[in-house]
Simulated scan of single mutants.
Amino acid sequence: MMLSAPGLAPALRRAGAVLAVMLVAVPLAAWSDEARLVLHSATTGDHNFNVEVVDTPEGRAKGLMFRTELAPDAGMLFDFKQQREVAFWMQNTLIPLDMLFVGADGVIKTIHVNARPQDPTSIPSEVPVQFVLEIPGGRSVELGLKPGDTMQHDRVGEPLAN
């Protein structure tokens, strides 16, 4: 069907209204970089998490700063896109966090439990890693996670940057 010029404006308004309704109806999470992640514990089995993924310097710098809560099954996955030693701190972070330092192969290398809110002390990975997963403080102990356990996520196993 061809629209004449006089009929074009009303048709575009209707299409715009439909698009606006669609935009409101789709959850914001559909556009953010959120994903499912599974932690595999050798002693307690599988544990599902909803994670926000950050892989830019700006995103990694902000991290979970200024957040006042984090659901027990939520976290933030930092992807450095290459293996290297990294260090984190808790400056401007208001909630305790566990930090799981994970290699490119998805194996948990080291875990820092209950990082203290607003502590500027450096928390190093101690070994080269590609990922750091931050989850609520104490959750890694509750779930029985240990170095050698694994993390499953779409980004694990992707080719590394040079």
Rank of each mutant, 00 (worst) to 15 (best):
A61R: 15
L39S: 07
P72Q: 14
F88G: 02
A87K: 12
L28G: 13
A104Y: 01
V38P: 02
R36G: 12
E58I: 13
P120W: 10
P159G: 04
D119H: 01
T68E: 10
R67F: 03
K62R: 15
M2N: 11
V21E: 00
L133F: 10
A30Q: 14
A61H: 10
L97Q: 04
D73K: 13
K146H: 11
H153W: 08
G148R: 11
V132M: 02
S140L: 05
I135T: 01
T68I: 10
L8E: 04
G63Y: 04
E34M: 14
L77D: 01
G106E: 00
T43K: 07
P124A: 04
I123F: 07
S41M: 07
L97Y: 04
N48F: 07
L39N: 05
A161I: 12
V132Q: 06
S122Q: 13
W89D: 03
G45L: 06
E34R: 15
T43L: 13
A35E: 12
D79S: 07
A29P: 04
E126S: 11
A30N: 08
L19F: 11
P10D: 04
D105M: 07
T110C: 03
F88D: 00
A25S: 13
F49W: 01
L3M: 13
A5I: 15
R60L: 14
S140N: 02
P124C: 01
V21T: 12
P96I: 09
M99P: 00
Q118T: 14
V24L: 15
L3H: 08
R84G: 08
